[in-house]
Design a protein around this nucleic acid. Structure first.
Lengths: 177, 177
DNA sequence: TTTTTTTCGTAACTATCGGTACGAAAAGCA
DNA sequence: TGCTTTTCGTACCGATAGTTACGAAAAAAA
């Protein structure tokens, strides 16, 4: 997961995974079946490590703007301090979708839908509680939040400082007020 | 250019380029020197075809908000009607930067800086003409516009309808008012 | 201990990648 | 026409991708 995250899901061959992990190649294949299976498992692990916390933020009972603040903090976490790579494996896989196998691509699609649903129901709850007035549909707004997350992760991967990214996120979300 | 644009800059092998173009492999190598040289040339062609028009919009003497409208129209152009692929080769290359050769990567960096500079000087002109009040630095705002462009291109590549993308762009830019 | 079963890694296989040696064909020139 | 030069593509190269056959080692059962 870390290798794909740091170097790109299609940039690390199985041989390199073996070298880094100390596992033998047949060992990898006995455990994951194929390159595709390994990537799928890595994405599953990423889901547990990163996407689930994100969904938990969206499902929390804080006010809309408290959640927005939590999202911003989450997006611009200092990765070096956490010994985690910059960027986002999930968005990287979405960008490399055409080069992934069937299993991984299916998982990407599933997690994307799951994430958009999480945004949408959060937005619907905020609307019904009167914390948010929006003239656009909730699914479009969900796309917007997901998009801003993607922006932030791409910028982080490109080396932009987190506090600069934070300023752009505030610019993006201030328009909702 | 079209092949890399439609299928991804690292997803189309030289053999496939030969098949599609009808050129022989040594012909490709005599013309472009290497895979890297070919990708660089494709990106250069993309610059002429897409990035230059974008820079022209930014350099035009319209008002700030007229330019914003022009940008939105430019980003959500119907590609099918123009027989052009969805998404953006430039952003695709930025996402695949680690898998590109030295020449192409250098060109990507150069064009990225050129684009950010174009945004920045446009924003500075708008500020000095009093058309735009912003508390954030112009280079950060430039990153923001570039980021929204990236969002839009990723969404288009993922199959989101252009009118939905347009709504998210308006949401992103309305915050500047 | 001996036998059976399971675990595991060396070493190979096939396909495909980017890249090129070299001879044939075409073009230019006499 | 005959000779030189340039243009061009077949057929190959080494490297590396993902994948696996198969024998050795370890564990379990006898």
């Amino acid at each position: 997961m870390i290798s794909y995250w740091a170097d790109g899901p299609t940039a690390v061959p199985i041989n390199e995974i073996c070298r880094r992990s100390g596992a033998s190649k047949p060992g990898i294949y006995r455990e994951f079946g194929s390159d595709d299976g390994l990537k799928e498992a890595a994405l599953e692990a990423y889901h547990d490590a990163v996407l689930t916390p994100l969904h938990n933020i969206l499902a929390s009972d804080q006010s809309f703007w408290q959640v927005v603040e939590a999202l911003i903090s989450f997006f611009v976490q200092d990765r070096q301090q956490l010994s985690l790579p910059d960027g986002c494996l999930f968005f990287a896989m979405r960008a490399h979708k055409d080069e992934l196998g069937d299993l991984t691509r299916a998982k990407v699609d599933q997690l994307r839908q799951q994430t958009l649903d999480a945004y949408e129901s959060w937005i619907n709850r905020a609307k019904s509680k009167g914390q948010l007035k929006l003239e656009i549909p909730s699914d479009t707004a969900a796309l917007y939040f997901d998009a801003q997350n993607g922006c932030a992760m791409r910028m982080q991967k490109e080396g932009i400082a987190n506090d600069v990214i934070e300023q752009t996120l505030r610019l993006a979300f201030d328009g909702l007020k």
